[in-house]
């Protein structure tokens, strides 16, 4: 109380300007501006453009013709679209196997043995190499004439398989190839997560007689929750944007049985026989809506976490 008059006296002599008074608000805004501008220009604007384009019929060269919801109506009866959508769901579900697989490899590698760093790098290797190389390696592995898979099957006296040539198997074959690097990715996430597991809690649990599965389920996994969350996010997004492997391994074939939405969109809009921009945009919008559902959930749960942390 005693120094109140002093402060008001100082306020009279020194009047901070608008910038100085709002420094707390302006500084972060200034820092964010370039990012926001780029985000608006390169993400939000194209999204709006795609929505708009999906109501037109346009070959990318001439005049665009407004067709209303016709592109979407056509999607409903398009058999190739249906196949792509189903394949996207297969990818979504099966790709999630990368999370438990990554967890178990991480648990296995989380020990101090000579040369463990090397083993870890070896397990991480598939994530480092390009998807194109992964695709090629698996294509050769599955090759019906000289592939390793059929050589092995032959050893056991089994019928040879043409995984990528069989419309019922091809998608699973590609997903398996995709799981290889994705598992490595989840593994590295869990390895870092395991470093942060509290040893005292493990000690305490051990004293209480927990071990094996109970220890894993009740003590370790709850502490790995942040890692699980990130692994879940990257796996879902990875599954929805799968494209490179399909393009390399089957190019959507045999007869369109391995297409997913992103590949179908590429085929319709940008490939050699495509250039139906409106139809491609409609497919992109559907994919966007599916992704949006997941992303909205992720953002919401991240927001909840932040609120809880505060």
């Amino acid at each position: 109380m005693s120094n109140a008059p002093q402060a008001s006296a100082r306020a009279k002599t020194f009047r901070p300007g608008f910038m100085a008074r709002n420094r707390q608000v302006i500084t972060p805004l200034l820092f964010l501006t370039p990012g926001i501008l780029f985000f608006l220009f390169y993400v939000i604007f194209p999204v709006i453009q795609s929505f708009n384009l999906s109501f037109y019929k346009w070959d990318g060269l001439g005049e665009a013709e407004y067709v209303g919801l016709k592109n979407y109506k056509k999607l409903l009866t398009d058999r190739a679209f249906e196949v792509s959508l189903w394949n996207n769901f297969k990818w979504l579900i099966l790709y999630l196997l990368a999370i438990p697989a990554g967890l178990f490899i991480a648990l296995f590698l989380n020990q101090t043995v000579t040369g463990i760093r090397m083993y870890k790098s070896l397990f991480f290797f598939p994530f480092v190499i390009s998807q194109v190389v992964v695709g090629l390696v698996f294509t050769w592995f599955y090759d019906p004439t000289f592939g390793l898979l059929n050589t092995i099957l032959e050893q056991f006296g089994l019928e040879p398989l043409n995984v990528l040539g069989d419309p019922n198997l091809a998608t699973y074959g590609i997903i398996l190839a995709g799981l290889w690097p994705q598992t490595a990715y989840c593994m590295i996430l869990y390895l870092t997560g395991l470093n942060a597991v509290d040893p005292e809690q493990i000690e305490a649990a051990r004293l209480d007689g927990a071990k094996g599965w109970r220890m894993l389920w009740h003590i370790i996994i709850p502490q790995l929750r942040p890692a699980t969350f990130i692994a879940f996010v990257v796996t879902i997004i990875g599954a929805l944007r799968s494209f490179d492997l399909i393009s390399i391994m089957t190019y959507g074939g045999p007869f369109g049985s391995t297409r997913v939405l992103s590949f179908y969109m590429f085929e319709k809009a940008l490939s050699e026989y495509g250039f139906r921009m409106g139809y491609g945009a409609a497919i992109a919008v559907v994919l966007f809506v599916i992704m949006l559902a997941f992303i909205a959930y992720f953002l919401w749960s991240m927001y909840q976490d932040e609120k809880g942390a505060r």
Binding site: L164, G165, G253, P254
Partner: peptide, 9 residues
């Protein structure tokens, strides 16, 4: 069987 097998690959 005039065509080679597995040509779709």
């Amino acid at each position: 069987n005039g065509f080679v097998a597995n040509h779709q690959t």
